[in-house]
Design a protein around this nucleic acid. Structure first.
Lengths: 245, 245
DNA sequence: CTCAAAACCTGCAAAAACGCAGGACTTTTT
DNA sequence: AAAAAGTCCTGCGTTTTTGCAGGTTTTGAG
């Protein structure tokens, strides 16, 4: 995936009081606060493959995904990029701070994505006046922390093949694909490798193997999961307590 | 490390109003709330190698470390244990919930550790009435999340030797060892392996190599770090933005 | 539709990591 | 102080992963 810098565009999103996105935590604010947030937040449309914010830039506030998909990425000095988290509708990107801080990681839109930006002070005001909202934000971060920790554990014990299977399941769970008939994943091999922590060759090998077994099919370069239960079964030794929810 | 089940003991800890532990987030509450918390929290002394809480048990509240060291662990079905986080004074273990939930991970004391237990409702009350406290809790979790994500990235790109070096640095940073003359680490090879995500043999091999290079010494089975800057240098390709703070 | 660029697949050899086994060293117990 | 138990070190063969190379397929622009 090529990542370009570029301008983000202002976009129209309903105000918070009648926002249709039920998974957004701002829904837990009272009416007054919602009105206030709706007036003061800034809406952006981030085009596919562009940064929501870049590693190393100043933290001005946090981003709530209204609609779209994003990945949280981190580069090392050898310029290898690793995807450390996937985020869908209602998820929070970045964080708030009252100090001068810099993002240690970056976030990139994986499709055209609409986000709501809450500036530091605004976020803090909402927290101060809306305990239920504060509680939900705490819950969000503590949940993500546990998920990240469990992922950490799994990755350090899984073999490469299993990590790749895990990447498929993680993609499905993050973007809310239910266990309908067939699930289509339109990610490049390199993209999947960056999630699984390996290289595109291994991803190809694993996909071939999974196709042989009949758990996957492919439509061009797209991947279709045909037997989700079997995929989950492959990881059963690791998933005693659900990482994917 | 053998982990035993056993009863935790009640212990005396100063009340929150005059608590000497400045890194505890409850310090951000107002005087009234501190008094209330001090009266209603429960203090425990968890003996070394015993669980603070076990994977799979019901979440009744969260634990604040008053004094001691603990590790957050996760077992897979093959009964291999992985350490996913280290926690020292003032850190939070577990989480709060208003629903019926179970801990997906466990926490084990690494030395005799005094903790303050805040029951779900008490925690929620503190958050509701003390925005500064709520803000700090959010900050704690979002920071830990970023650290976990960066660790995730590093681990998926480091070679085993580097992961082991990282484990040393992580231990030092988590337990607040400053860069004084010499730093002593009293962990078994297996313990270090569980943090680094490898096996004790590789830890031994790496330690030997580091001793050859003169970055470490050993006193019996204990490890003494003699050249911290050099150790950090080994990881410089990965640590552009500080994971260890 | 055609063609070039990009992405993908797979064989292979080199590198890395694993895990057993046996001996050395430490710690604990008696 | 000696014995026993536990931990650590290291050599070695096996398994796993890596990364290149070259051929194939897919995609997207004109």
């Amino acid at each position: 995936m090529r990542i370009q810098k570029g301008n983000v565009l202002n976009t129209s999103i309903p105000t918070c009081r009648n926002c249709p996105n039920l998974s957004c935590l701002i829904q837990y604010c009272d009416q007054e606060a919602k009105a206030f947030a709706g007036e003061n937040k800034i809406n952006y449309l981030i085009p596919k493959d562009q940064y929501v914010f870049q590693e190393g830039s100043l933290v001005l506030g946090a981003y709530f995904i209204f609609k779209g998909k994003a990945k949280v990425v981190s580069n090392n000095l050898q310029n290898r990029q690793q995807t450390v988290r996937l985020a869908g509708d209602g998820h929070i990107l970045g964080h708030m701070t009252l100090d001068k801080e810099f993002y240690p990681i970056g976030a990139v839109a994986m499709e055209d994505t609409k986000v709501c930006f809450l500036e530091n002070k605004l976020f803090f005001q909402l927290i101060s006046n809306n305990p239920k909202f504060a509680y939900q934000v705490i819950r969000f971060y503590s949940k993500e922390l546990r998920k990240s920790e469990l992922r950490n554990r799994s990755f350090s014990q899984m073999k490469t093949f299993e990590k790749i299977v895990f990447a498929f399941l993680y993609i499905c769970s993050s973007f809310g694909y239910t266990e309908k008939e067939k699930i289509l994943i339109d990610f490049s091999r390199a993209e999947i490798a960056a999630i699984a922590g390996t290289n595109p060759e291994q991803v190809s090998r694993s996909i071939s193997l999974l196709k042989e077994k009949g758990y996957l099919e492919s439509d061009g370069q797209k991947i279709i999961i045909t037997d989700m239960p079997k995929l989950k079964e492959l990881l059963s030794p690791y998933l005693s307590w659900e990482i994917l929810e």
